[in-house]
Computed example of a mutant assay.
Amino acid sequence: MEGFEYGNDGPSLILAAVDGSVTSLRAGAYAAGLARRQRSELVVITVTTTPALSAMAADAVTVLTQSAQELGQELQQWAKQEMHRLELQARFVLVHGDPYLEIVRCADELRADAVVVGASTKAGHRLVGSLAGRLVKAGKWPVTVVP
Rank of each mutant, 00 (worst) to 15 (best):
9 D>K: 09
69 Q>T: 00
41 E>I: 02
26 R>Y: 11
61 V>F: 04
36 R>K: 13
42 L>S: 06
48 T>Q: 06
54 S>N: 08
50 T>E: 14
58 A>T: 14
19 D>A: 11
19 D>M: 10
49 T>A: 04
14 I>C: 06
69 Q>L: 07
23 T>K: 08
56 M>P: 01
27 A>Q: 01
57 A>G: 11
39 R>H: 13
46 T>I: 11
51 P>F: 12
29 A>Q: 14
37 R>D: 15
46 T>Y: 09
47 V>G: 03
22 V>A: 15
14 I>T: 03
49 T>D: 06
37 R>G: 03
21 S>C: 10
41 E>N: 12
64 L>V: 11
67 S>L: 13
44 V>G: 10
58 A>M: 05
32 A>V: 07
57 A>L: 15
6 Y>D: 15
34 L>K: 09
36 R>F: 12
51 P>S: 05
51 P>Y: 06
22 V>Y: 04
10 G>A: 03
43 V>T: 07
17 A>T: 10
60 A>H: 05
21 S>E: 12
6 Y>V: 15
10 G>F: 08
56 M>T: 08
39 R>F: 14
27 A>Y: 00
70 E>D: 11
38 Q>G: 00
60 A>C: 07
33 G>A: 14
8 N>K: 09
15 L>D: 06
38 Q>Y: 06
68 A>Y: 03
37 R>I: 07
61 V>Y: 02
23 T>I: 15
68 A>I: 02
9 D>G: 10
56 M>W: 05
25 L>T: 03
62 T>P: 01
45 I>F: 04
61 V>W: 01
21 S>R: 05
36 R>C: 13
9 D>C: 11
34 L>H: 08
61 V>H: 01
30 Y>R: 09
33 G>F: 05
35 A>C: 09
71 L>T: 01
6 Y>S: 15
62 T>V: 15
51 P>G: 07
35 A>N: 06
35 A>Y: 00
53 L>Q: 11
13 L>S: 10
38 Q>W: 04
49 T>G: 04
14 I>V: 14
53 L>C: 13
24 S>W: 07
13 L>R: 08
